[in-house]
């Protein structure tokens, strides 16, 4: 399955890109995708406990299973207003 990953703010800077695509195995979840990314970019690991995630522009939990074509967003702690 292919999924699109969107990264924002500091996460975007760490990864050096705002958007990337990844091929994941059946049974992959938001959380397993995050772990893949954190292996590629060690500096992401510090966000393990503070990120939020979204699938197709709706907030989603880390155990959410992925489907082909999903857009998965990882969001560092927010600071709007």
């Amino acid at each position: 399955m292919r999924v699109t990953v969107r990264l924002f703010a500091r996460l975007r800077e760490i990864a050096g890109t705002a958007e990337l695509t990844r091929t994941v195995e059946a049974g992959a979840t938001v959380g397993s995708l995050w772990k893949d990314l954190a292996r590629e970019h060690a500096a992401l690991a510090q966000y393990e406990r503070s990120i939020s995630s979204a699938v197709n522009a709706d907030y989603a939990r880390m155990d959410r299973p992925l489907a082909d074509g999903d857009e998965v967003a990882f969001l560092p702690p927010v600071s709007g207003g």
């Binding site: 924002f8 703010a9 503070s50 979204a54 969001l75 560092p76 702690p77 927010v78 709007g80 207003g81």
Partner: peptide
Amino acid sequence: APIWKHEHFEGGDVWIEG
């Protein structure tokens, strides 16, 4: 709200994380 501020200050910059 998934919104972030990137503060540019005298001597550097920082992402504010709330």
